[in-house]
């Protein structure tokens, strides 16, 4: 699906340029939000009842904690894979504005 989208965009860059740029911006927003989401999800364990707490709730079994943490972890990794795939073509012809000065660095 991603490949198809790229292909269409490349065939007619002029027509879809604005939409493409817009999508890129939103994709960057999503990439910036992802660590925030991760931090929030990893902060959820702060709410769990612990063995040392004197509260009424029974402490959470470690196996469930493991399942939750590793699931979130895997989801974040998948999110990054997805973002990496979408942005793979960005260094190609229709590069983002922030990569415009790449040639300047080629000194050594």
């Amino acid at each position: 699906m991603t490949g198809d989208g790229d292909g269409t965009d490349r065939r007619s860059p002029a027509v879809f340029l604005e939409r493409q740029t817009y999508r890129r911006r939103r994709l960057m927003d999503a990439a910036r939000l992802l660590p925030v989401l991760g931090a929030l999800l990893f902060a959820v364990p702060l709410l769990w009842p612990g063995a040392e707490d004197a509260g009424a709730a029974a402490p959470l079994p470690t196996s469930r904690a493991i399942r939750y943490i590793f699931l979130v972890w895997a989801l974040l990794i998948l999110g990054n894979i997805w973002f990496g795939l979408l942005t793979r073509g960005w260094s190609g012809p229709g590069r983002a504005e922030d990569e415009a000065e790449v040639p300047e660095r080629g000194l050594g």
Binding site: P45, P49, G50, I66
Partner: peptide, 24 residues
């Protein structure tokens, strides 16, 4: 293994919240 984990001395959630956040 999961059953063994829950039965072990560390089978319950015992993490101190402030340490969890600080160490992260």
């Amino acid at each position: 293994t999961m059953a063994r984990i829950d039965a072990s001395p560390i089978g319950e959630w015992q993490v101190n919240g402030s340490r969890w956040a600080t160490i992260t």
